[in-house]
Design a protein around this nucleic acid. Sequence first.
DNA 1: ACCTGAACACCGTTCAAGT
DNA 2: ACCTGAACACCGTTCAAGT
Lengths: 212, 212
Amino acid sequence: MRLVLNRELIVHTAVEVVEREGPGGLSMRAVGLELGVTAMAMYRHVPSKDALIEGMAEYVMAALEVSEDEPDDWKAGARELVRAFRAVAHEYPRSLALVLESGTSIPVGLRAIERGLALCDRAGVQGSAAVHVVRSLMAFTLGSQLREAGFTRVLRAQDGDPAEKVRALSPARYPHVVALPDELVDNPPDTDFEFGVELFLSSVEEMGGRTG
Amino acid sequence: MRLVLNRELIVHTAVEVVEREGPGGLSMRAVGLELGVTAMAMYRHVPSKDALIEGMAEYVMAALEVSEDEPDDWKAGARELVRAFRAVAHEYPRSLALVLESGTSIPVGLRAIERGLALCDRAGVQGSAAVHVVRSLMAFTLGSQLREAGFTRVLRAQDGDPAEKVRALSPARYPHVVALPDELVDNPPDTDFEFGVELFLSSVEEMGGRTG
DNA sequence: ACCTGAACACCGTTCAAGT
DNA sequence: ACCTGAACACCGTTCAAGT
């Protein structure tokens, strides 16, 4: 049983380890152990841990399925595109968190960019405006992912009922907050995300002047 | 010259160290050295490194200046609010990066939430819709920050002129990408961000049905 | 050519010991 | 009460040595 080590295998194993053990469980030694090899053996194929994580980012983003079909309409196509990213995020949540945590940039593929620009075109938005739209939607999608992964915290008390805590706030200082305790505490990621996407797309629609 | 150690001082020093040395330069030993104290001495005031980073997140976000004035109109107020967040991000770029990189959640203050909801109210958006709007704008703002800090990478070749590389792509496969080489390579963070904000706000306007 | 062992310079954290 | 020194169990990475 001779094991042939290569970059692909190492990266794949690293993703497995992280999905099983979490971001903290990733070490060169741990990946080596999983492969039945010492940590040093991997330096022949991966120059550093940072490079390994970069490889993981590419591996994960390669799973993004960008449709090539003509969409029913540009809005349906746009929804499909952002949901494809969400699907990847839900398939590799801990690896994606690790990539963000390590400061490694997420490589967005050319096919996704091309698709986004094509959909903008269909919506009647061209040129630099289209680039801005695609980037803005990327920022929103990534930001939503951060929120879902718990990178932002609002009103998240660890002890006691959070809604009760909101109700206990000063209505004079925080009138609008106090009026919406359940809405603020309830935090359904999908609903939030879908809402934001629709908000976004309706703006694009107005911009391009086309309904379909 | 007797030094009185406390949590506030330790957190402040940690922020200083990170802004000077970068996220990688933060270690308990390094912060201790800066204070003329061993790393172990700090464990009396900060239970762990994670807790220290949490403290840094609070320290940084405490710098967010939320206006209490009546805004000229809700749009102007909204622009001011998101720009206040940007100002913080530009004041503590490396600390904010560290907070994101370490997976520590960013504590968004009550005053910012209250302000966001109040502005929604002014725009004619209430209830759970207002909560969704505030959260979406938070996601977008944070995502934009990630993009600016280099957490996402598109068409960012390290060698040669990137615009040339875009032009060298197959026009059959990437027609829209090839048509916009300069727009895609040019990456002005402020312009991108402002564009997205306006896109967002015009949607909110349509939703609430009020111009002012 | 490919992998290992030992070593180096770091970490966060614990805890008995000092003052 | 507050801080230190030594120690423990880890890291990433280098490099001479093995096969």
